[in-house]
Simulated scan of single mutants.
Amino acid sequence: MQGFLKRCALLVAISLCTGTAQAAEKVIFDTDFNVLNDDGQAFIMLAQLHAQKRIELLGMTLVSGNAWVDQEQVDALKAVERMGVEKEVGVYSGAAYPLLHDYATYEAEKSLFGSGWPGAFKHPRPTSPSQLVAPPDGLATHTKVRSETAAQFIVQSVRANPHQVTILAVGPLTNVALAIRSAPDIVPLIKRIVYMGGALEIPGNTTPAAEFNWWFDPEAAKIVLRSPIEHVIFPNDVCEKVTFDKSVYQRVIAHKGAIADLYKHEFGPLFDKDPSYHSFTWDSLPALFLVNPQIVTESRDVWVDVDATFGADYGRALGYKKGAPVGTQKANVVFGVDQKQFWDGYVSLVTLPTPVNH
């Protein structure tokens, strides 16, 4: 009997361990990728979390935003090789253009309302590989973009893993909108969408009204945010409270390696010129939130929409405590984070050795 009980206890223990392993959140990283701005930093964190089996990173889906998707492919392919996850984490190219917003519209907005960060709209889309810029440590040597489009990959992944896939959407929402519109059956099967986007109670960073991600494709943002899915939003309201400064930079470069070298290349000249230089790391906040939701110190349930009518408010995030328009969905919007806990978690991930240690 005692032996039988021991075997039962062992089976329970194995079952619990297996359950824990299976509990890793399945994540699609939908991104307007770059080498080492916020998207690049977030990916370093996600690749390490994937290696630690704290998340299961299904793939990276690219959407024009910060840059045209052509340049993002170059940067993303090198990124998965640099981190050593290229066999496990596919790169899927997505929407090259917003649903309706275009360069001509941007030129009109700029003249009428003013403009901050324009992303890809700062120049026409590249027409030749010679116009693309290699990452500081060179091009990818053996990794290619996967054959499926970003929207196809999102649809396939959600259907294959119902109620298990979180979409971490840190760029314009064109890919997600295309996936939802092409396959509406996936909407109730998506576990949740965690966003970096919008500016609810502060001015925008592209126009006085609008934050960049949702401004770049307001129609797509409206489609996605009005879908009955669990929405968790990190708007500029919280992201621009969290400052990357020289003290964080020095913590990162104290650890030698490929990632520290990238930080030195990207930020070293800026801090040499101005020791008080600082920036934000928008997309890293929702990336860490996936495994450490305790970083959030303040959040509120708000019904969120996007103004998709051309004018001074084009792309503005709209938040309602009550009286929201019909069709608007409730979102959990983050307004405060524990900055020490965030930066400790951030530094601990971006300073781990690369390629990742599985």
Rank of each mutant, 00 (worst) to 15 (best):
M1Y: 11
K6I: 12
S15R: 08
L16R: 03
C17N: 04
A21I: 10
A23K: 05
D32E: 08
L36N: 06
D38T: 15
D38C: 06
Q41V: 06
I44H: 00
M45K: 01
Q71F: 13
A76F: 03
L77W: 08
L77R: 08
A79Q: 12
V80G: 14
E86V: 04
K87H: 04
V89A: 01
G94D: 09
Y97S: 13
G116S: 10
G119F: 07
P126F: 07
A134R: 02
P136R: 03
T141I: 06
E148G: 01
Q156F: 06
Q156P: 04
Q164P: 01
G171W: 02
A179H: 07
A183W: 07
D185L: 03
I202S: 15
T207G: 15
A210Y: 01
A210G: 05
A221S: 15
V224H: 10
L225N: 13
L225I: 15
H231Q: 09
C239V: 00
C239S: 14
D245L: 09
D245F: 10
D245C: 08
K246L: 12
H255Y: 10
A258K: 12
F280W: 01
W282S: 05
L285W: 01
L288T: 00
P293R: 04
Q294W: 08
V296C: 02
D307H: 03
T309W: 05
T309R: 08
R316S: 12
A324G: 07
V334R: 00
F342T: 00
